[in-house]
Amino acid sequence: MFEIRSRAGRIVLQIVATALVVPYLFPLIVMVKGALAGEGVGNFRAVLGVPGFARFFVNSVIIAAAVIVLVYAVTMMAAFGFAKLHIRFREVYFWLLLACLTLPEVVLLAPLFATDTKLGLYDTYWAVILPLAALQVPFAVLLTRNFINSLPDELFEAARVDGANSFRGFRYLVIPLTRPIAAAVLIFTLVAAWNDYLMPLVFLQSPSLQTITLVPQFFVGEFSNDQTKILASAVITAIPEIVAYLSLQRLFERGLSAGAIK
């Protein structure tokens, strides 16, 4: 870790850090200011009063939770295999998985629509959960594999000497030691699943299944476009993500920095 001892150096670093934060902070300030314009707090009351708002929120929680569980389970097992197990053509499989990062979400809509219709998944939670989880796994595996690579091989060798097989090593070594990177994966997956607009819009047609990201549609019509309430809905939508990040901030930062170093 680099350390700046001089006062002038710390001042310069503070100025640079502030300048880097401002471009990201400015849109948030504009969003909150716009949400309080016009009717003020009444904009938030109007959003909370949308018919079925509570159900939309619950649907988002269900989808986000299911995506997080799937991504965590698949990522941890795949990353452990790519990092510590001797698998034939391991690197080939890993790079094929990373190739999936090049696929934009919109390109997959047509094949996903045909697949969901044929399998009877259209207009169900799974039509959104499975594609969102699949899209998050490659990047999560990339981060987690690097983190697990940093774990000493001596730990796993000692476990094998004590009679532990690969599953027990995964359960008692990998799972407890990967909490920081698990927090990073959780935050990234939550943001992606919670904020996704396209998948629920295309694959969830029943009002009882729609998510909170579709709430702004209630304030946009042929003869109306209430931007203040749209911004208020965006603020409300962001609150769970902010709470989750603040709750896991330390683990998230540790996991993200460690996962970026091989």
Rank of each mutant, 00 (worst) to 15 (best):
I29Q: 03
L231P: 00
I129H: 06
R45G: 01
L251M: 14
T115R: 08
I148E: 00
E222V: 12
A164H: 05
R145L: 04
V235G: 02
L48A: 12
Q205S: 10
E3F: 09
L103Y: 08
S208C: 03
G163H: 07
V32G: 04
I15W: 11
A78G: 09
L132S: 11
L109P: 07
G81K: 00
A99M: 12
V22I: 15
P240M: 04
P207G: 03
G169F: 01
L20M: 14
M76K: 02
V174G: 00
G40H: 09
F113V: 05
F147E: 04
G81I: 06
G259F: 09
I239F: 06
A64M: 11
A232G: 05
A238N: 04
R171W: 12
V141Q: 11
A159R: 01
W194A: 01
Y245G: 00
L119W: 12
L190I: 04
A184P: 00
F219T: 01
R10A: 11
V71R: 00
A46Q: 00
L103T: 04
M199K: 00
F80C: 02
L173H: 01
L198C: 04
A193L: 08
A73W: 09
T124W: 09
E39C: 02
T213M: 14
V137S: 06
T75C: 14
E91I: 11
N146A: 13
A19F: 09
G9W: 12
A83W: 06
L155D: 11
C100P: 02
A192T: 12
G38T: 08
F167L: 14
A73I: 13
F203Y: 15
R179P: 03
R250T: 09
S233H: 02
F219L: 01
S150C: 06
F53T: 01
